[in-house]
Design a protein around this nucleic acid. Structure first.
Lengths: 206, 206
DNA sequence: CGCTATCCGTAATCATGGTTACGTTTTCTG
DNA sequence: CAGAAAACGTAACCATGATTACGGATAGCG
């Protein structure tokens, strides 16, 4: 099978996996059910992904890439850092509490090997925080904020995400709508501005 | 069986459940294994708790009661509210990222009915937030802070817990030690004081 | 004490699913 | 084109576990 065709098959398998996750959650996704839905065989799944954990490891990595790519769009614009953050925040939060991320977090919660959790940490949060740190460094450089960029990024993530994700994962909370997400992201940014005030304003929150 | 003896049996069953959770996690706890460990029969478990979800629902409720009781000790002292918070914070955070709470959160993540998540929300967080709100009301009353107590409690929980719990649940993060917990609680309180400054200091952080 | 209800320990029922295996078909390569 | 490898569809193997059932023992009550 050619690489491009193989990649297309992988895409189809992974799309089928997300469909099944949407319908029946993590517990409702069996390798047999996925093979059927993706019109692949068990043997192919095991050959390509190793085992169920390997499959989910691939899903986690792919999802993290998607999140990173979406954020990078906003980070490279060289425009007003605070305006950038006012766009990054809702988008990042929306992804982190969206169905895919929550399904993958539930998979990690169920994975006794810790493989998925490690992947979530490494490919996800540990990759996003430095990206945010770049934006905060630019904001500090331009005088909009003052403080250590890495610390500001940490405090921002804390105020942006808070305990929303764990409450989503445990089903203590439904998926928030876009307004709630935007409001929370704006509040997080306002708190950052209050905690780390710069000597130049800039960056109206839209 | 007398009520007191029955309560003792329940305590023993629930203690055995936590032992098994410690050893093998949620996935490692079967009703059969628990019956064996608690020297009870399957039939008793099902008669007393209804089903596996019911058992975990009872564990969630009992755990929430314990957390509430522990916090209430500090809340009723009528002493300096900020000193109270400096004690409440580490204790609350330690419980929320401790083994029991994490195991119960993982159970909720795996519970497709949403029963456990609802219990975590109702008996847990929704019960704790108003308690904290009382402390913040006292702090506002005494001029140590200023602002709406419910909002301050929300922001405090956000900064205290942040994404620690979800990272613990997914195994992206190990259990933090006491110093890390205290440091984080102190940082959360310092942020609250910066965001909602009162006109009277009080409450040195110990 | 006798009777009833509950509980224990054990086994059975039923269902599910991770993983491997196999005959056939398809794809790839020289 | 021929042969080998990979993939499909299906079935089997093996394991686990939620829940129910059952005979006997224990506890509670009148």
């Amino acid at each position: 099978m050619k690489q491009s065709a193989r990649q297309q098959r992988r895409d189809a398998i992974e799309a089928a996996a997300y469909d099944l996750l949407d319908q029946g959650g993590y517990e409702g996704l069996s390798m047999q059910g996925l093979a059927r839905a993706a019109k692949a065989s068990n043997e192919t799944l095991y050959r390509w992904y190793g085992d169920k954990t390997g499959l989910f490891r691939a899903l986690v990595d792919r999802n993290a890439e998607g999140i990173k790519a979406a954020l990078s769009q906003h980070i490279d614009t060289g425009a007003d850092p605070l305006v950038g953050l006012s766009r990054i925040g809702p988008e990042l939060l929306g992804m982190l509490v969206g169905r895919r991320a929550i399904a993958l977090n539930r998979a990690a919660a169920a994975d006794a090997t810790g493989t998925l959790g490690e992947a979530l940490g490494t490919a996800g949060r540990d990759a996003v925080a430095p990206l945010l740190g770049q934006v905060f460094a630019a904001a500090a450089q331009s005088g909009q904020l003052s403080g250590a960029p890495a610390e500001m990024a940490e405090v921002y993530i804390t105020n942006l995400v808070g305990d929303w994700q764990v409450r989503r994962v445990t089903r203590a909370m439904a998926e928030p709508d876009a307004k709630a997400i935007t409001d929370r992201a704006n509040a997080a940014l306002a708190r950052i501005r209050a905690l780390y005030p710069g000597d130049r304003s800039g960056g109206a929150v839209e």
